[in-house]
Amino acid sequence: MSAEVFVEAPLPDALVAVAAATKGFLPDDEADALRAVVAAHLRPGGVAVEIGTYCGKSAIHLGHVAREAGATLLTLDHHRGSEEQQPGWEYHDTELVDPEIGAMDTLPFARRALHRAGLEEVVVPIVGRSTTISAFWTTPLDAVFIDGGHTEEAAQADYAGWSPHVRGDGVLVIHDVFPDPADGGQAPFHVYERALADGFAEILHVGSLRALRR
């Protein structure tokens, strides 16, 4: 982990407690690495985008970094759950189902988490499909964190829609990159391979988290 791309970005104890109480799939070592590498690339007035809010765990980590940098985090999600979170699948959580419509709805959980963390002024939730929003996006980005749907179609669309907006010295972070199929799904790994082929270079690897820069 190079000092050039990895800086100290500790999470205050109060936010550690909120993040720990928030549903999500980001291990502590990966959360530490995510904060550190994004903190090294966020500029005052800059913008970071997270694809895949879920219940807001990683948005707390990134939101703290954005606040410290004087930047803004936009966190995108349709909040209806990815494929593995639907009824009958491994990561389905009945607590996240809206009983009135019978569909997943993680937005209220994310909003509560951001409120408890005191980050509502710096973290902007955007409710919608990643491809819908990226189609009209024009702002250069300091950081993009891809952690959305894990089907090949969804992961590749997230990369295609958002990686072109990473500024020349910005950072692209991809979660759940597993080279060995026995460890997890392959779509994020294929996105990682595509990024390397497109000229991104890996600058950080912690667990399943990979950070790349042009």
Rank of each mutant, 00 (worst) to 15 (best):
K57A: 13
A31D: 11
P108S: 03
L172P: 01
L26F: 05
L62A: 06
A33G: 09
E83V: 13
S130M: 08
V206W: 08
A143T: 01
L196T: 13
A195P: 00
P188L: 03
W162G: 03
D29T: 11
A33W: 06
A66H: 00
G207P: 03
T132W: 11
A14Q: 12
G148W: 08
P12Q: 03
A103L: 15
L114G: 00
I60C: 05
F145Q: 01
S82W: 12
E30Y: 07
T72P: 05
E68H: 06
L42Y: 05
I174M: 10
G128P: 02
F189W: 15
Q86R: 09
A135Q: 09
P181F: 12
L62S: 06
R210S: 06
P181C: 08
E95N: 14
R111G: 11
E120R: 12
A69G: 05
P179C: 09
E4H: 12
L172N: 04
E121Y: 09
Y192G: 04
F178R: 08
P44M: 01
G56W: 02
F145L: 03
L212H: 03
A160K: 09
G45E: 08
D32N: 10
V123S: 05
A31K: 00
H41S: 11
F200H: 02
L141M: 06
V16Y: 01
L76V: 15
G185I: 06
D180V: 02
R213V: 08
T131M: 11
K57T: 04
D147N: 07
T106N: 08
R167A: 14
D158V: 01
R111I: 11
E30A: 06
R35I: 07
T106H: 04
D93I: 02
R112W: 05
A197P: 03
D28E: 15
G199M: 07
G52M: 02
A160I: 06
W162L: 03
D169H: 05
I126Y: 13
A201V: 13
L114S: 00
S134A: 15
G149T: 00
D158G: 03
S82R: 12
G81K: 00
